[in-house]
């Protein structure tokens, strides 16, 4: 892997239910880089992310995330890989039976951190996402945007090197989407690499970063030309 890349895929192919989702693709995400992965619904963007956090393995090729050869590591090493990643989904995946503080603390408790550190770190990340005043509230008492902020705080708790976001604004209204994008941008400015799957072109235009389109099993680098995203030649 090149020294500056935190994710690298080489000659990766993936089939899913007799359909070729990825066809011999190469991809790199550099340290501190923000990249959008766009494409039509059902094209395989989420499958691409699954390869990175090892929910699935490719048919062929190699996947590297930080120092981990993802498709070669044993199942015992998978949790260690996931601690290097912050993962955010469209459906918030918060535990409804515990408050905001506990939802974030949980990410540190499962990795065996000491209670004192857990408390300190949780308050730190909740402050970062602007929710420290809501720490005792239950998820159901929060708006969608706030719930997604809690999820981002949880994803950041372990200080990962990469944030994977799968349609993080998919369930949010434009105002909440903007606040989440601002937050992701702020996180990226601190040096964390962000790979965000989205099909919200308005957001991609408003927050311009490197954009990659998934099309017919391939990846295509895009750039803005006026109002249009066009392939980089």
């Amino acid at each position: 892997m090149s020294e500056t890349s935190v994710i690298e895929l080489r000659n990766v192919s993936l089939s899913f239910e007799n359909r070729r989702v990825l066809n011999n693709i190469d991809f790199k995400l550099h340290n501190g880089e923000f990249t959008y992965l766009i494409g039509a619904t059902g094209i395989g963007k989420s499958s691409f992310l699954k390869l990175l956090y090892r929910d699935i393995v490719p048919d062929t090729g190699t996947v590297r995330v930080t120092d981990y050869p993802v498709n070669k590591i044993s199942m015992k090493e998978v949790p260690m890989l996931r601690r290097r990643l912050g993962i955010v989904f469209q459906d918030f995946q918060l535990l409804q039976d515990r408050n905001v503080f506990d939802n974030v603390a949980f990410a540190l408790q499962v990795t065996g951190e000491k209670p004192k550190f857990v408390k300190q770190r949780v308050l730190e990340v909740l402050t970062m996402v602007g929710l420290s005043h809501r720490r005792k509230h239950m998820p159901k008492d929060l708006s969608g945007g706030e719930q997604q902020r809690v999820v981002i705080a949880r994803a950041l708790a372990n200080e990962p090197r990469i944030l994977l976001a799968d349609e993080p604004t998919g369930n949010l209204d434009p105002g909440a989407s903007k606040s989440i994008m601002d937050l992701l941008k702020q996180i990226n400015n601190r040096g964390m690499a962000v790979l965000m799957v989205t099909h919200d072109y308005a957001l991609v235009k408003k927050y311009p970063f490197r954009t990659v389109r998934m099309i017919e099993g391939s990846l295509q680098e895009l750039q803005w030309k006026g109002d249009k995203l066009v392939p980089v030649k």
Partner: peptide, 17 residues
């Protein structure tokens, strides 16, 4: 199942879960 998914998401080992 939600708890298990969330635990896996944040890198808990199967033994811990």
């Amino acid at each position: 199942k939600d708890l298990i998914r969330a635990m896996k998401l944040v890198g808990a080992t199967n033994g811990f879960i």
